[in-house]
Design a protein around this nucleic acid. Structure first.
Lengths: 141, 141
DNA sequence: TAAAATTAAATTGCGCTCAATTAAATTTTG
DNA sequence: CAAAATTTAATTGAGCGCAATTTAATTTTA
């Protein structure tokens, strides 16, 4: 049998489904002025309020080449501030601003809107979630 | 409960797992001079030998803005040729070259190498596959 | 303590991704 | 048939993503 077929490789539906789901977010995120990457960065910041660039990158599986310009754009929008750590000047501390905090209110119904347009029931979504975290080699929380 | 958390949204592990898996392909694909997107394009071409740009884009969930330059780079590498359809000048026909055909041999052990580094057993991989195709709203083949 | 190694961001360069637009060919419709 | 609508690629512009490199700060080690 031919393993070099699109249908025999798990990577492809993973890649395609990821893009399709991100695409569903785009119009909703546009209403609040965020890209998908900016959105997941804000999700972490809404939770933690303050985090280093390094820790944020680790949360999101993004390296500094990606995270640095994302943070700068969030700063330009007034959603976060950037400052060097006093204990370790190498570290960049990102802090949620009041304006960033307020944006959370406008984002709060996005997950539910997306959930309702994914054609998975509760058990399927749970199962998919578990399997993806297994691929990531991280425990689902 | 707070739905605006990274852990409560299916999109995030999907997005992260997709990137991590593509990243596993990168060093293997580098050996044969392809990017991931070029690789999945070649997979379709190894199967079909000839396809229009539109059909290729549909297979891969990619629009012309992405597929056009990808095809041009494959052409520059001598793996495919591009020609307009005689019946419909709007359509671009992409044809696998002999050199493109030969590359298949060098790629043939990639799926197995990737499979062995994903920490999923056979049943889990199958389940993940089915769930992802359900998200894509397409029947798995 | 001074040199070497490590760490964290930032930068660079290349390619991907998509939305929106454009241009050309074809099909539909009046 | 001619005008309008549709279809297909190509183009443009903004942002992501990563590998590789650079710069500066800190830690390790000789």
């Amino acid at each position: 049998m031919d393993s070099l077929k699109l249908e025999s490789q798990l990577c492809f539906p993973l890649y395609a489904a990821s893009k399709e789901v991100v695409k569903k977010y785009t119009p909703l995120l546009e209403e609040i002025g965020l890209t998908y990457t900016q959105y997941i960065s804000m999700i972490v910041l809404w939770d933690k309020k303050q985090i280093t660039a390094k820790a944020l990158g680790e949360c999101l599986f993004l390296d500094s080449g990606t995270i640095t310009p994302v943070i700068k754009r969030l700063e330009q929008q007034g959603l976060v501030t950037r400052q060097r750590s006093l204990e370790d000047e190498r570290s960049l501390i990102i802090t949620l601003t009041q304006s960033g905090e307020l944006l959370k209110e406008r984002a709060k119904n996005i997950p539910q809107k997306i959930g309702s347009c994914l054609k998975l029931d509760r058990d399927e979504a749970m199962m998919l979630y578990q399997l993806l975290y297994k691929v990531l080699g991280k425990e689902p929380i």
